[in-house]
C-alpha cells in the first residue's frame, strides 16, 4: 500500500491549511484599502498559487507509485489502493478550491492577478488527471466472479478469438489475419 498520500497531510493539517486560507481571506477584506498591505497580500496569494502549481506533480508521483506497485504485483487490494488515491485527489481539489476562493476574494478588492486564470487551469488539469487515471482502474468485486461463473454456465462468455475480434471491431477471420501479420512482424 502506498504511503505519503498528498503531502502526507492528515486531516488536522488540512484543517490548518483551511484556517490559513480563511485568515487570508479575512485579511484581504480588512486591508483592501491599504496599498502597501495589498502588495504584501499579493505576494502571499502568489505564494499559495505557486504551491498549488506543485499539486499535479505530487499527484503524478502518487499515481506513479501505484503503477510501480502494480508492475511489481504488489497491490493486494485494488479497491483500497484506488480509494486511497481518490482521497488524495479529493484532498487536492479541496485545497485548490480553497485557494480559488482566496483568489476571488483578492480580486473582489479591485486588485488584479495575472496568475488567476492559470489556477483555474490547474484545477481542471487535476480533475482530468483523476478522470484519466481511474477510467480503466481495476474495480474487482466478488460479484464479478459470481457473474463470470453464471455467464459461463449460460454460454454467454466469448471464446478468446471472438472476444478480441469484437474488441477490435472486426470479424474473427480478420482478427486471425491481423494476429498472423503481427506475429510475422515481430519475428522479422
Amino acid at each position: 500500500m502506498p504511503t505519503g498520500i498528498l503531502f502526507g497531510l492528515p486531516q488536522g493539517q488540512l484543517e490548518a491549511f483551511e484556517e490559513a486560507l480563511a485568515v487570508g481571506k479575512e485579511e484581504i477584506e480588512l486591508t483592501a484599502k491599504d496599498e502597501r498591505k495589498k502588495a504584501r497580500l499579493a505576494n502571499d496569494v502568489k505564494g499559495f498559487l505557486a504551491l498549488c502549481r506543485e499539486i499535479p506533480r505530487v499527484l503524478r508521483r502518487e499515481c506513479d507509485s501505484v503503477l510501480d506497485l502494480m508492475a511489481a504485483g504488489g497491490i493486494e487490494d485494488y479497491g483500497a489502493t484506488g480509494l486511497e488515491l481518490r482521497r488524495s485527489f479529493a484532498k487536492a481539489i479541496e485545497i485548490l478550491n480553497g485557494v480559488q476562493e482566496l483568489v476571488q476574494t483578492y480580486l473582489s478588492t479591485g486588485s488584479s492577478l495575472a496568475e488567476a486564470n492559470a489556477h483555474v487551469e490547474v484545477i481542471e488539469g487535476v480533475k482530468q488527471q483523476e478522470y484519466e487515471f481511474f477510467a480503466h482502474w481495476p474495480d474487482f468485486r466478488q460479484e464479478d466472479i459470481e457473474g463470470a461463473l453464471s455467464d459461463f454456465q449460460h454460454g454467454d462468455c466469448l471464446e478468446i478469438d471472438e472476444a478480441f475480434a469484437q474488441a477490435k471491431g472486426i470479424s474473427k477471420d480478420k482478427w486471425s489475419v491481423l494476429v498472423e501479420r503481427e506475429i510475422k512482424r515481430r519475428n522479422s
Partner: peptide, 27 residues
Amino acid sequence: YRVVLRPSVAKAISQWGLSDFMLVEVY
C-alpha cells in the same frame, strides 16, 4: 486451458485504445 472472456471484458478492452501490436500482445 481454454480461455474465455465475459462480453463486458471484450468491451472494456475495446475502450483502452491499444495499438494492434499491444492488442495482439494481450491476446
